[in-house]
Design a protein around this nucleic acid. Structure first.
Length: 422
RNA sequence: GGAGGCGUCGCCUAGUCUGGUCUAUGGCGCCCGCCUGCUAAGCGGGUUUGGGGCUACAACCCCAUCGAGGGUUCAAAUCCCUCCGCCUCCGCCA
């Protein structure tokens, strides 16, 4: 959630942020009136409660008839206090609901507008040129025996697959390369749970408008995470961190599950858009002031990984309307997919500032004992499927073999070229 | 899955049976000050978190907070119910 003080002291700033995302400011007005109602309810309750406490003390000391008289008086007061407590609870709930609906305030630097209004920051790597008719990843995967889409559908349904043979090895190699890079950069490696309670889901902003993309376990209060950002943001919930330890960097490896509701017919071919994949995610806790520089660092690490795969890609500054609930700013790395003739998202890094930590009660204390807000950031280091797609399509050769980028070779036992199985 | 035990403001801990001076005890740690060649010891004070009021987002005042949520009561750390977590033993399993 956004800072309540900003909402109260500078509501126009929140309205402007809403407008930048292309959203109405109804929620802002709703939150403001809920806030004043809440404070009135709190004042009413607290005043009567104090009275009740004072009288309770008299009752404890009184004896006999005097005590009976006091009891009769305080009884009505107790009922009133109980009623006011309920009113306060409702007012707090209404306020909570309202402010939770307000997305993070987009950075001033973030481009205004929607999905199409991104700004290209840079383009890197050589664009692949072929003197033959290039194949798409499905065809290449079939020739290499890298994955099995038919059996994936047979066993689990559409948008499922098996990685097989060299595909499974490639999967493992990419994950290991990513984790090694993260370790070298000082990240703490984590394997988080992929099932979480509603709190974690809500705290990271995935239960609002994004809720229909989330798998829920029937009969239990558990959700399958779409990214390890969820368990990692909840990792330090209800904790007070030592600001001296910032930035706290984690590299989490986990499966990711997505319903892909509403994307029927979109990217149905191959393993591009699927219900499950694995991902190495960078997740950082740091101070608000440092978060902007850290965001750039996360982007640099993503670029380092993309460069090692020798891909052609561009970096975009995502527009405000496409940020999602939690992000203040977001950069995506989009790799060139030859068969589609366009750039597609491979990694994404967001600065969520203190939006998630407010929802999850994560705070920090500096050396002087003062409380400071905590920012969270996340960034894809390596999701498994899309890099494999980009890799196969970019480095394919006329006979259907695929050249392995040098950096990846140590992770494939020195293999320089992946060759068709038949 | 079965049986038992436990959850108190950083850590440890008193209090729960017998509801009300609990405004939660004491120790350790930590912070401030005094004292002091230095250090240590000693002495005094402070030290949960969230929210509200007033404001300089200080001081101060108030409310809530004893794992969480309900209930009983004028009054709950204390009594009752539900849930969560941890520990021990048994069973089962990777």
């Amino acid at each position: 959630m956004i800072d309540a003080r900003v909402l109260r002291d500078d509501p126009d700033r929140v309205r402007a942020a809403q407008a930048k995302r292309g959203l109405s400011d109804d929620v802002v007005d709703r939150a403001l009136s809920a806030d004043s109602a809440r404070r009135q309810a709190i004042a009413d309750f607290e005043a009567r409660r104090a009275e009740q406490k004072a009288m309770g003390k008299q009752v404890a000391q009184a004896q006999g008839e005097e005590k009976q008289a006091l009891l009769a008086q305080v009884k009505d007061l107790a009922a009133e206090v109980k009623r006011l407590e309920a009113v306060q609870g409702e007012a707090e709930q209404a306020w909570h609901d309202a402010i939770m609906d307000i997305p993070n305030l987009a950075a001033d630097e973030a481009p205004a507008g929607g999905e199409e209004d991104f700004v290209v920051l840079e383009t890197r790597g050589a664009k692949p040129e072929f003197d033959f008719e290039p194949r798409d990843h499905v065809e290449l995967g079939r020739m290499l025996g890298a994955f099995d889409l038919e059996r994936g559908a047979k066993v689990s349904g559409s948008r499922f697959y098996f990685f097989t043979g060299v595909g499974a090895r490639l999967h493992r190699a990419l994950v290991n390369m990513a984790l090694d890079q993260a370790a070298a950069a000082g990240f703490t490696e984590v394997v988080p749970p992929s099932l979480v309670k509603p709190r974690a889901m809500e705290g990271t902003g995935f239960l609002g408008q994004a809720a229909d993309d989330v798998y829920r376990i029937e009969g239990q209060d558990l959700y399958l995470v779409g990214t390890s950002e969820v368990p990692m943001a909840a990792f330090h919930s209800d904790e007070i961190l030592d600001a001296g330890a910032f930035p706290m960097r984690y590299a989490a490896f986990s499966p990711c599950f997505r319903k892909e509701a509403g994307s029927h017919g979109k990217d149905t071919r191959g393993i591009f858009r699927v219900h499950w994949f694995d991902k190495v995610e960078m997740f950082v806790y740091t101070s608000l002031e440092d978060s902007f520089a850290e965001h750039q660092r996360l982007l640099e690490w993503e670029k380092e990984f993309m460069d090692k795969l020798e891909l052609h890609y561009r970096v975009i500054d995502v527009a405000a309307g496409d940020l999602g609930l939690s992000a203040q700013r977001k950069f995506d790395c989009e790799a060139w997919i030859a068969s589609q003739g366009r750039y597609r998202e491979l990694t994404s890094t967001s600065n969520c500032t203190d939006f998630q930590t407010r929802r999850l009660d994560t705070r920090a204390r500096d050396a002087q004992g003062g409380a400071t807000p905590v920012a969270t950031l996340n960034g894809t280091l390596c999701s498994t499927n899309r890099p494999i797609i980009a890799l196969l399509e970019t480095h394919q050769q006329a006979d259907g073999s695929v050249r392995v980028p040098e950096a990846l070779r140590p992770y494939l036992g020195g293999t320089e070229v992946l060759k068709p199985v038949e």
